[in-house]
Amino acid sequence: MRKLFLSHTTEFVLIGVIVAMSIFLAFATDRFFTLGNAFDLLNISAVNIIFAVGLLVVLIAGGIDISFAVAASVVQYVTALALERIGGGGWVSGLLIAGSAGILLGMINAFLIHRFRIISIVATIATFNVYFGLLMFFTRGVSIYNLPDWLTTRVIIYEREMADGSWAEITLPVVVMAICVFATWLLISRTTTGRQLYAFGDNPEGARRFGINIGAMPFIAFGWLGLMAGIAGLMQAHYAQEVVPNALYGRELDVLAAVVLGGARLGGGKGSVLGCVLGVLLVSITQNGLNLMGVSPFAFKMIVGAIILAAITLSSARIEKLIPLFATAKPGDDTAKGAGR
């Protein structure tokens, strides 16, 4: 058990914080600890979790991307216009168009980073502004409401009537989110490519000497994030039943905070899907709890900033060093030695 805790310290800490916060909010508000609110949290968090697992792969590979939310907005418009041209299409064609457009935008980031040796955060700040500027220029900020019926029709996977007559529902974005989470877990945990991404993020030069094609790594990482951004954009359009050019603008910092909080290291080579999902859920629970308690939404932005600061601090000074349990570990304990490396 101790070895398991040492290897998944961040995840255990996040679970503890989520449980403690949930208990507090259950007493502080009447609606938090209800099935309807729990399902609403899942439905609302689905798009951010899809973003997050894509960003996780980029962070593992040692990069950073802040353009993915704007890229998803671009994908929404491109997909909506393409579907109109082909007569409406369906879920298969919609996912193919959105996924392909997202991968293309991700590959542009990877090309700039690899070909011109631009630092990833600088490259994605540039593409963030280029993508958003082009989107607003060509759309004039006008939303699209005339979407195909299959895209705007709510798909309810599970529903249950509550005692007050309301309905608790699990919708399609939650299922798509679960598939994306599982696919990302398979990629980084069960494939050679995943191990190469970890190695590349931890030590690019060492990875090159080991025979890993380091030129392909940025394209795989940013391409995967682009795919997730495309899918998330389509799910956002389905959930909102409209395409709004700035609907996803600003989510990049919330998602980045959640992923780093979940244990992904900004320097690369570290991160888990479970920690990533828990990080998003913690941020979502915080926002949901503040809303139910009637706290100003501006306070949430301050909390997100504090979360980013805390996450970066904890990623620099390993969490286990801050927990007294490990300070009292026996000198001859091999596990404790491994934790302190």
Rank of each mutant, 00 (worst) to 15 (best):
8 H>R: 15
22 S>V: 10
29 T>D: 03
31 R>L: 07
33 F>N: 06
36 G>T: 14
40 D>M: 09
44 I>G: 00
45 S>G: 02
49 I>A: 01
51 F>L: 04
53 V>F: 11
55 L>K: 04
57 V>C: 02
60 I>C: 00
63 G>S: 09
65 D>V: 10
68 F>W: 04
73 S>F: 05
78 V>I: 15
79 T>V: 09
81 L>P: 00
84 E>A: 15
85 R>N: 08
88 G>L: 11
93 S>G: 02
93 S>Y: 14
100 S>T: 15
100 S>R: 12
101 A>D: 04
102 G>I: 12
108 I>E: 00
114 H>P: 00
114 H>M: 09
115 R>N: 04
117 R>T: 07
117 R>D: 11
119 I>V: 12
119 I>F: 11
122 V>H: 05
124 T>V: 12
124 T>F: 14
127 T>F: 11
145 Y>W: 09
147 L>H: 06
150 W>K: 05
151 L>M: 15
153 T>E: 13
154 R>T: 14
160 R>P: 00
162 M>I: 10
166 S>G: 08
168 A>T: 06
180 C>W: 09
180 C>R: 10
184 T>Q: 10
186 L>I: 15
191 T>W: 14
192 T>F: 10
196 Q>V: 02
198 Y>W: 07
198 Y>V: 07
198 Y>K: 08
200 F>L: 01
207 A>H: 05
207 A>L: 01
211 G>W: 13
213 N>E: 10
217 M>R: 05
219 F>L: 07
222 F>K: 03
223 G>L: 14
226 G>S: 10
228 M>N: 12
242 E>A: 10
246 N>G: 06
249 Y>K: 11
254 D>A: 05
258 A>C: 06
259 V>I: 07
260 V>D: 02
264 A>K: 07
268 G>C: 08
272 S>M: 12
272 S>F: 11
273 V>H: 12
275 G>C: 03
276 C>A: 06
281 L>D: 00
285 I>V: 15
287 Q>G: 01
289 G>D: 07
294 G>I: 14
300 F>N: 05
301 K>I: 12
303 I>M: 08
303 I>V: 15
304 V>E: 03
304 V>N: 01
310 A>E: 02
318 R>E: 08
319 I>K: 00
322 L>D: 01
326 F>M: 02
328 T>F: 15
330 K>A: 13
332 G>A: 12
333 D>F: 13
334 D>G: 10
336 A>C: 01
337 K>C: 01
